[in-house]
Design a protein around this nucleic acid. Structure first.
Lengths: 218, 218
DNA sequence: CACCTTATCTACTGGCGGGTAACGCTACGT
DNA sequence: ACGTAGCGTTACCCGCCAGTAGATAAGGTG
């Protein structure tokens, strides 16, 4: 738009940056635009504009639109998984592990809502190779929770096989609660985590009887 | 495709159907195609082909692509809500009400996976007027669960305000479990419902201690 | 300074797909 | 018999946007 006026005159001020940096800028812009408009409504032109880079750069560095999207998914998914895994302290008792995992998860989602939007809402609704990456991350998350449950279960007597589906249910509940949180951003992350923790550990039945779960530290 | 061979010869056998019927066919086809490819990747041409009707008919009867999608959402959402509401027998105790509600929900989703895909995955990821309809349905579902919880809570002493967020969490968990179920279709609907019921009513803590919930009848 | 490499732009195209104009056919009422 | 209303089609338009060709300029290296 207004570039044209200054472009002829001030071209010399254009910085030439190394590929690595440009790629980061482009990915950041892409995540944001994909999050705002969705995969299909996002135009490469807008992404390039937000990134402060011209369109051919994107094609040169990240490839096609699909490639770009896949790169976003991959980067964000990896970051999220790392954040959650870092939150779990394996030396603590099972309920505290779960608590910290949930805490790390909601903290990350709260601090990176756009990432979560792209991951959960966009990637999942596009079929094909995108959901693969997602399903993979999901599987990792489920197995993380599963091993956690198994450690308690074998000690206490909950039968094998049930744990995995319970893990799936819990991961699903967390995902969907995060999704709900997107539309109800006023609640602090700790409170969201706490609600899910209470539901998951005590259940309605227990809550109705007046029981609650709360972290032993803090 | 193969129409051409018979078309010249057997044109007289082409049925001319009343508007009402055609609209149903078109909506059925649209739900299916939207479910398969997503809103944006679905082409009006393909929908018309699947419906066995030419494209201008769709525009004549259902309007633009957006209108068509909205009509799908509306029809499917209404059906789902009716199915769930019909399952809840208000004269039973709270846990049994929940159980029947969950049962009806998963039964419906199992029998109408395409509907669920369109509702949950597609409609939610498109912004704008589509999600409105969805959020509305969701609110109705949440308030359904909420009133159920409130009846128990006031009897027992769970504080107000907490019930609604718990209801939201439960609805979210059900949604996401249904979503998970789409990708793991081998499990029977009753089993999915039962797992969620146990998680929701007993919690991990209770399950680990060996408690389980099961319907008093059946 | 000559040179090559790499970063970066402007300006275009090709086609996909939403939407429509204009016309044909069948049936029914009078 | 024949007009009219509404079911139905073929064949087209056109805007948007992913993707590209080809030119330009900025550093580094000798």
């Amino acid at each position: 738009m207004d570039h044209s006026a200054s472009s002829v005159h001030e071209r010399r001020r254009v910085k030439r940056l190394p590929r690595e940096v440009r790629e980061r800028q482009i990915l950041d812009a892409a995540v944001r635009v994909f999050s705002d408009h969705g995969y299909h409504n996002a135009s490469m032109d807008e992404i390039s504009e937000v990134a402060g880079v011209s369109k051919p750069m994107i094609y040169a560095y990240l490839g096609s639109k699909e490639d770009l999207f896949a790169a976003c998914i991959h980067r964000e998914a990896t970051q999220l998984l790392e954040a959650v895994a870092a939150g779990v302290r394996t030396e603590l008792p099972a309920d505290m592990q779960l608590w910290h995992g949930l805490g790390a998860f909601f903290e990350y989602v709260g601090a990176h809502r756009e990432s979560w939007r792209v991951l959960h809402r966009q990637a999942i609704s596009q079929g094909g190779p995108f959901s693969e990456e997602l399903l993979d991350m999901r599987r990792q998350a489920i197995s993380l929770v599963d091993t956690l449950l198994v450690r308690v279960a074998t000690k206490e007597g909950l039968d094998r096989g049930a744990t995995e589906s319970l893990a799936a249910a819990l991961v699903g509940a967390a995902e969907s609660l995060a999704d709900w949180w997107l539309d109800n951003p006023d609640v602090p992350s700790r409170a969201v985590a706490s609600r899910l923790m209470n539901l998951a550990w005590i259940g309605f039945g227990g809550l109705v009887e007046g029981n609650t779960w709360h972290p032993s530290e803090d």
